[in-house]
Nucleic acid binder design. Structure first.
Length: 667
RNA sequence: GGGUUAGUAGCUCAGUUGGUUAGAGCGGAGCGCUCAUAACGCUUUGGUCGUGGGUUCAAGUCCUACCUAACCCA
C-alpha cells in the first residue's frame, strides 16, 4: 500500500476489438466518457489509474487475417496502430493503451487458470465440434458456413442464419462447408474442452450483485438481474484455435483460452504494464472502480468478469460504478464502413478539431437511448456553445479590456455576491453530475456557467461604464470576467483539454487546471494577459451540406427497372399463353424471363424489372420465381405496371434508340 | 421465439416514490445591445406525453395488449 492517503480511482474503458476501423460510436461509447471522468478525477486530486487497450484474440482476427493474407499478429497489430493514432488524435489520457497479446497477459491468465483449477472450478468435458478435414482444424461457429435449415439461405453461419435470424446447432446446418477453404469435407469430431463451473459460485455472485448493482446504470442492473434469474451457466473457456493464450494444461497443447475468458483480464495485465503499484488499485477494497462500456458489453462486465473475479477468491477489486452507453446512429442509420456511411476515427480530426468532437458528442451522449448523430446538430453545438458562448466570451473580455486598460487585468472591486452564488450553484451541479457520470447533465451545467459570463457582461455593460467615465467600475466588472475565464479553463478542461490550455495561456502567469470546489478569484490585479486567437471556428451551412453529402450520402439501394432488349422468343413448354424470353439487360445478355404479353417479339426494346425491383404498383419486390415450372429472373413491364396509363396487357415498347441497360426512371 | 430498454414540442433530450397550468436547449418569430467570432442578452411560439384498453379521487408516471426501434439470449 502506498503511504499517501489520496483516494484511489480505477477507471477502465472497454477494450475495442482489433477488427475494422473505429468510428464515432466507439469514441462516445466508452473512450470519451471514461476520459472525461478520468481527467475530472485527476483534477480533483484523486489517485487515478486509467487503462484501456486492444482486445486481440478470438476467431474474427484469424478469419480477417486469412482474408488479408497476413498472420493474426500482423493483422491485429495493424489495427492496434490505428487505435493508437485515434487515442492520440482525441487526447485520450490513458495511463496506457495496451493490448492483450502480451507476455504479461499470458503469465496472468496462466496463473488465474491454475488458481481456478485448484479451487475445483474447472472441469473437462467432451463435445462434438465441426472439423474440416482439408483445413486440418476444428471450425468455430463463424468459420462454418452452409445452408440454413429453416429458410434455405446459402450463406448461413454455423450457429445462426443472418437472413432469417434462426439459430440451430452446427449439426443441423445443411451442406456445411469451411469458410476458410470452402471445403465441404466436414466431420463432427469429439473434442475435449475445459469448462468453468460458474454455477458453483452463483450464490456468491448473487450476494455480490445485491450490494453492488444499486450504483449501476438502469440498463446494467436490468441485464444483470435477468441473468441472476436464469442462473449462471458453466461455460467452455477453451477453443480449438491457434491464435490466443495457449492453455497451460497437458493434453491441451493445440488449444487456446476463449477470448472472453482472457479479454477482461487485459485490464489487469495492462495495469501491470502501466504502473508497478497496480495492486494498490486492484487489490484495494477502498479503491473506487468505474467501468465504461457500450450496452452490448454489459453482460460481460456485470456477470462474466465479476463471477471470475469472485471465483478466484483472491481479493480482486470488482466494479463499483458501471456506466453503459447506448449506441450512436449516424444520420438516421447505422455506421457502415462498407457503405461509406459515417465518420471514422482515422479522418474525424481532419473534419473538425478533437475538442469540437469531444464536446459535441458528450453533449448529446446516448445515455438513455440510442442517439442520432447529424452534422446539422454537430454544427449547432459547436457554433452555439463553443464558438458563441465560450470562445466569444473570452474574446470580448480580452478585447474590451485591451482597448481601455491595456494588456493587464483591471483592479477588482467588491465581490459580486449574486454572481458568486450563481456560479457556485452551477459548479456544485457540474461536480455532482461528473461524480455520478451523468454527462449530459454535466454539459448542461457547464453551458450554464458559460451563459452566466455572457449575461453578466450584457447586464453590467462595462463598455457603457467606460464611455460614461466610470473606468473603475468597468474595471471591476472586467476583473470578475477574467476570474470567470480562469474558472472556465478549469471546468472545461476534462471536456475540451486543448481549448482549456489555450484559455489558460491567456494569462502570462501559470495557473493550474485543478478542479474548483467553488468560485475562487485566482487572477491578481494587474496580471498581464494576451488576447488569444479565436479559440473555435464556425461550421457554416455550406460546410454542413458538404459533409452530409460526403459522409451520409443517402445511397439509393433500390433496384431500378432497366431498358432491355428481347433477343429470343420461344413458346413455353407447358403453357400456351406464356412465352419464354431471352432478354439482354446490358450486363446480363441471356436472362430467362417468362412473359404472358401478346406483343413480345425478337428485337423489341422494353423495360425489365429485375429481381429485387419494387414497382410503384406493387408492394413487394419482384422475386426470382418459377412460373409454370420454368424459372423467371424478372419481369417485362407493361405501361400500367410502370405507372404510365392503363395498358396492362401488352409490355411497353420503347424507341429503338433507347440505351439498353440504362435505368428507366419512374416518373 | 424469450428477456431488457426506449417511443414526450419541427430537432435532440429532462421529467425523482402517480398529485396543482408537462420542462430545457436548438430551430422559428419578435425585441434589445454593439465590447465581441453575422457573435451576446431578453421575450415568445411549439406537445390528446407511440396506439387501444384498465386501475385510481388523480397517470407521461402503475397494470395489460398491440405497434415501432435497439441490445442481449435461444
Amino acid at each position: 500500500m502506498t503511504t499517501d492517503n489520496k483516494q484511489k480511482y480505477l477507471i477502465t474503458s472497454a477494450l475495442p476489438y482489433v477488427n475494422g476501423e473505429l468510428h464515432l460510436g466507439h469514441l462516445i461509447g466508452c473512450w470519451l466518457p471514461s476520459d472525461i471522468y478520468a481527467r475530472f478525477c485527476r483534477a480533483c486530486g484523486r489517485d487515478v489509474l486509467y487503462v484501456c487497450g486492444a482486445d486481440e484474440h478470438g476467431t474474427p482476427v484469424v478469419v480477417g487475417a486469412m482474408k488479408e493474407n497476413m498472420s493474426p499478429f500482423d493483422y491485429s497489430s495493424k489495427y492496434y496502430e490505428k487505435h493508437l493514432r485515434a487515442v492520440k488524435d482525441f487526447n485520450l489520457s490513458f495511463d496506457l493503451y495496451g493490448r492483450t497479446h502480451t507476455e504479461l497477459q499470458e503469465k496472468l491468465i496462466h496463473e488465474l487458470f491454475l488458481r481456478l483449477d485448484n479451487e475445483g472450478l474447472i472441469e473437462e468435458r467432451e463435445t462434438l465440434q465441426p472439423f474440416s478435414v482439408d483445413d486440418n482444424m476444428f471450425l468455430a461457429d463463424r468459420q462454418l458456413l452452409g445452408t440454413c435449415p429453416k429458410c434455405g439461405y446459402e450463406n448461413a453461419r454455423g450457429d445462426q442464419c443472418d437472413k432469417c435470424s434462426a439459430s440451430y446447432e452446427a449439426t443441423e446446418l445443411l451442406n456445411p462447408r469451411s469458410a476458410i477453404s470452402g471445403s465441404t469435407n466436414i466431420e463432427m469430431r469429439p473434442t475435449k474442452n475445459l469448462f468453468f463451473l460458474a454455477s458453483k459460485i452463483e450464490g456468491k455472485w448473487k450476494q455480490w450483485l445485491e450490494t453492488h448493482a444499486p450504483k449501476w446504470s438502469k440498463t446494467a442492473i436490468a441485464i444483470a438481474q435477468g441473468w441472476a434469474k436464469e442462473g449462471l451457466q458453466d461455460t467452455s473457456i477453451t477453443r480449438d484455435l491457434s491464435w490466443g493464450i495457449p492453455v497451460n494444461k497437458p493434453g491441451y497443447e493445440n488449444k487456446v483460452f476463449y477470448v472472453w475468458f482472457d479479454a477482461p483480464w487485459g485490464y489487469v495485465s495492462i495495469s501491470q504494464a502501466a504502473n508497478k503499484d497496480w495492486e494498490t488499485w486492484w487489490k484495494n477494497p477502498d479503491c473506487h472502480y468505474a467501468q465504461f462500456m457500450g450496452k452490448d458489453n454489459v453482460k460481460f462486465h456485470a456477470v462474466l468478469f465479476p463471477e471470475q473475479q469472485l471465483a478466484m477468491n483472491d481479493n480482486w477489486k470488482t466494479v463499483d460504478q458501471l456506466k453503459a452507453m447506448n449506441f450512436l446512429n449516424f444520420e438516421g442509420g447505422k455506421f457502415s464502413k462498407s457503405e461509406k456511411r459515417g465518420v471514422f476515427l482515422d479522418e474525424a480530426v481532419s473534419i473538425a478539431p478533437a475538442d469540437a468532437w469531444r464536446y459535441a458528442l458528450i453533449a448529446s451522449a446516448p445515455e438513455t437511448d440510442d442517439t442520432d448523430f447529424t452534422f446539422a446538430r454537430f454544427a449547432d453545438i459547436v457554433n452555439k456553445d463553443l464558438n458563441g458562448m465560450l470562445g466569444n466570451f473570452v474574446s470580448r473580455v480580452c478585447k474590451l479590456t485591451d482597448k481601455n486598460f491595456g494588456l493587464t487585468v483591471p483592479n477588482a472591486g467588491e465581490l459580486d455576491a449574486s454572481l458568486t452564488a450563481q456560479v457556485n450553484e452551477k459548479i456544485a451541479e457540474l461536480t455532482a453530475a461528473l461524480d455520478a457520470c451523468e454527462f449530459r447533465a454535466a454539459v448542461v451545467a457547464l453551458r450554464s456557467l458559460y451563459a452566466i459570463g455572457n449575461e453578466y457582461m450584457t447586464v453590467k455593460e462595462p463598455w457603457t461604464l467606460v464611455k460614461n467615465g466610470n473606468a473603475e467600475q468597468a474595471g471591476a466588472v472586467l476583473n470578475e470576467c477574467f476570474q470567470l475565464i480562469d474558472l472556465y479553463a478549469r471546468v472545461s478542461a476534462p471536456f475540451i483539454p486543448d481549448a482549456a490550455e489555450k484559455i489558460q495561456r491567456v494569462f502570462n502567469n501559470t495557473h493550474d487546471l485543478s478542479w474548483p470546489k467553488e468560485f475562487e478569484r485566482r487572477i491578481q490585479n494587474g496580471e498581464a494577459f494576451t488576447v488569444p486567437e479565436n479559440l473555435f471556428s464556425r461550421i457554416d451551412d455550406a460546410r454542413v451540406a458538404e459533409l452530409t453529402e460526403k459522409y451520409a450520402k443517402k445511397e439509393d439501394n433500390n433496384v431500378k427497372p432497366v431498358v432491355a432488349k428481347i433477343i429470343a422468343v420461344k413458346n413455353h413448354p407447358s403453357r400456351d399463353d406464356l412465352h419464354l424470353l431471352t432478354v439482354d439487360d446490358g450486363t446480363n445478355h441471356n436472362l430467362q424471363i417468362v412473359c404472358g404479353a401478346p406483343n413480345v417479339r425478337v428485337g423489341l426494346i422494353g423495360v425489365l424489372a429485375p429481381v429485387g425491383c419494387v414497382l410503384p404498383t406493387m408492394k413487394k419486390p419482384i422475386s426470382q420465381r418459377t412460373v409454370a415450372g420454368t424459372e423467371s429472373f424478372g419481369m417485362m413491364c407493361s405501361a400500367a405496371e410502370l405507372g404510365q396509363g392503363n395498358n396492362a396487357d401488352e409490355i411497353i415498347e420503347l424507341d429503338s434508340d433507347a440505351k439498353i441497360g440504362s435505368i428507366w426512371e419512374i416518373k
